[in-house]
């Protein structure tokens, strides 16, 4: 017993050293390296960067090192700084030969942050399905939630904690009629009333086929989305951007990044190089002309400029951000919301 106790004591001591020493060193001595704020400029056809120099002064440059004034910087990123340009009376009639209005620019602007910690997290398994066509300007939250079971979709009334058998049967029937195989293996929605419109959910069924499910005037709207040959979707991200151009983004099992157009349900592959949403975070700033996509790959930040028209790759830039932290025993990670030992 004594030997076992001694062994256990030293094992615990070693565990604490492996956990606490690197953790203290990283906290006090390591400054996290980050890339400058970078956006693709359609005006100069290059990445524009905003960074701080050694004297903590803001510097505005492009990827080739050319310096800009603050006002010039606003002008080369007209979509991002559109309100500033309007306030200064400098908003252009056209950008890159295309006539634009402030409303057009603002409607097309979007940003999307995809973080692995949102995927690698405990899930409750209950969702809210809003009414997409209530006839009112503002959306309202429903008085029920739903869960996807092995045999169907089940709506539970929150006030009474009772299953709404009639509604559950109606939606299950509609989904099965469209060929949905229960249970769903992925589901993505944005159940909040603080948005302009509601597109319900996109779901992958048990056979990894893509479906769009929403509630319109209390009735189920279910649409099976045809996928290109060979595409096996992995993760779904509903968009609901003001432009209403896309239904969702998705990644495939090979790391490809695809968009699903809202009106035509066309599924189009972007020229974005491989992206793994379980390991890498992504930040997209999109506008009428292009998307700037930042992918955090751990030791480097990769920036990609995609054409907003056909999603072709316009330019790319990699900024190394070496991780100088000590590797030890950790129990939490920025990549997930679980507590578990990991080296």
């Amino acid at each position: 017993m004594w030997k076992t106790s001694k062994l256990f004591f030293w094992a615990l001591a070693a565990l604490l050293v492996l956990w606490q020493i690197p953790s203290c060193y990283n906290f006090f001595a390591v400054k996290p390296a980050d890339a400058p704020f970078t956006l693709y400029s359609p005006v100069i056809g290059d990445f524009a960067m905003l960074r701080f120099d050694e004297e903590k002064r803001m510097r505005y440059t492009d990827a080739s090192g050319r310096e800009y004034t603050k006002e010039q910087f606003d002008s080369i990123l007209p979509a991002f700084y559109c309100r500033q340009l309007v306030a200064d009376g400098r908003f252009p009639d056209s950008i890159c030969g295309r006539a634009v209005t402030l409303r057009q620019i603002q409607k097309a602007n979007f940003n999307l942050r995809l973080s692995p910690s949102n995927l690698n997290a405990p899930q409750v398994g209950l969702q809210q399905l809003l009414e997409s066509m209530s006839g009112r300007v503002d959306l309202t939250l429903p008085d029920d939630v739903f869960r996807i079971t092995d045999t169907g979709i089940e709506f539970v009334r929150m006030e009474t904690n009772q299953i709404d058998e009639e509604k559950s049967a109606r939606f299950t029937e509609a989904m099965k009629r469209k060929g949905f195989h229960f249970p769903a293996c992925r589901i993505s929605g944005n159940p909040t009333a603080r948005k302009e419109y509601d597109e319900g959910y996109v779901m992958l069924d048990a056979a990894r086929r893509l479906f769009h499910v929403k509630q319109t005037v209390g009735r189920p709207y279910v649409r099976a989305i045809e996928l290109p040959e060979g595409l096996v979707p992995e993760y779904l991200f509903i968009t609901e951007f003001p432009s209403r151009r896309w239904l969702c983004f998705l990644t495939d099992t090979g790391g490809g990044f695809w968009v699903v157009e809202r009106d035509s349900y066309a599924v189009v592959r972007t020229e974005l190089p491989s992206f793994d949403p379980r390991e890498e975070s992504m930040l997209i700033f999109g506008n009428l002309f292009d998307w700037t996509v930042k992918v955090d790959r751990g030791g480097e930040k990769c920036f990609y400029a995609l054409s907003a028209e056909d999603y072709t790759l316009l330019d790319s830039l990699t900024i190394p951000t070496p991780d100088r932290s000590w590797r030890g025993l950790r129990f939490t990670s920025p990549k997930d919301k679980f507590v578990k030992p990991r080296f």
Partner: peptide, 18 residues
């Protein structure tokens, strides 16, 4: 330090697997 281990949870149910 050992007791701190029980209060690292960044989210509910974070400890389930552990």
């Amino acid at each position: 330090l050992l007791l701190r281990l029980y209060f690292l949870a960044p989210a509910p149910e974070a400890y389930n697997g552990f």
